[in-house]
Design a protein around this nucleic acid. Structure first.
Length: 268
DNA sequence: AGGTCGACCTGGCAGC
DNA sequence: TGCTGCCAGGTCGACC
């Protein structure tokens, strides 16, 4: 999916674009993305106004005037686009009373949509760790968490229970900025390095949000446009290309079934 | 109990 | 051209 910076960009676009609009009609083209019966979702959305758009980790919650939350997890290939052209990957569309239309597109159909009264009804929220920009995500928390695990640090960064919102792209980028090898085990991370992880997690994510995210293949923002942070990526998807720091080739390895990119010389 | 591995899907691309 | 295999930003349940 889009990771935190991409989802945050979509959130900001929607917050500007659909606030206070009233849902007139719901069109469901593919119910595989729904975690509730189509009829129930339609009924719960129809007639509601969108009162706020909030983000938690990589999930969006659209606050409805009924008091319920429309939870959208876009996963790898989901897109929420206002007034875009309908395509063969459009799985759902909302007509607003003012004539605007919100599309949910999803090539791989991994996305999950549901309307809930309580955030705890969403499995993802039940296990979710602190937001990277929250006070709860601090040097002491990071150090204490890492101390009790032997998993490679890359896998820990990807774990939503440790911190919300970091995915495969930013995990590699953050570790490069910290000069820490993705293979280093959690309990081998020093206190000073926990502080570095904290600092660079915030810095990398903030910069990516400022550039409206990274578009590798499928990600588009709420207006259907690509993000610009790809140009700033130092290691992700750069196997064989020179390290920006020392010039030696960037390596690609596989950890927990996912690609990791890093510089063997700079990251120890 | 901590940690890893498929499954869930579609489509683009490289190689033959 | 057309086939095969690999790869892709996430999450979750099954299994070791």
């Amino acid at each position: 999916m889009p990771e935190l910076p991409e989802v945050e960009t979509i959130r900001r676009d929607l917050q500007r674009g659909i606030l206070n609009k009233i849902i007139k009609r719901v069109h469901i083209f593919d119910s595989r993305i729904l975690r509730q019966p189509a009829k129930e979702i339609s009924q719960k959305l129809s007639g509601c106004a969108i009162e706020a758009v909030v983000r938690r980790g990589k999930a969006l919650a659209l606050e409805l005037s009924s008091g319920e939350h429309w939870i959208v997890q876009v996963m790898m290939t989901g897109q929420l686009i206002l007034n875009g052209p309908r395509g063969r990957h459009t799985r759902l569309a909302l007509d607003f009373t003012d004539g605007d239309c919100l599309l949910y597109n999803d090539q791989r159909v991994f996305g999950q949509l549901r309307v809930v009264a309580d955030f705890q009804d969403v499995p993802y929220f039940r296990i979710l760790g602190p937001e990277p920009f929250d006070d709860a995500f601090n040097d002491a928390y990071i150090a204490a968490y890492l101390k009790k695990t032997k998993r490679p640090i890359k896998n820990v960064l990807l774990d939503p229970g440790f911190v919300a919102g970091i995915g495969n792209i930013y995990a590699s980028e953050i570790l490069f900025q910290c000069r820490i090898s993705p293979k280093r085990r959690g309990h081998r991370i020093k206190l000073s390095e926990a502080a570095l992880l904290h600092q660079h997690t915030n810095a990398v994510l903030k910069q990516a949000i400022a550039m409206r995210g990274s578009s590798m293949r499928n990600y588009l923002d709420g207006a259907g446009k690509k993000g610009k942070f790809n140009q700033r990526l130092k290691v992700y998807a750069r196997a064989g290309k020179p390290c920006a720091h020392c010039g030696s080739p960037i390596e690609r390895i596989v950890q927990a079934g996912r690609s990791t990119f890093y510089c063997m010389k700079c990251q120890i």
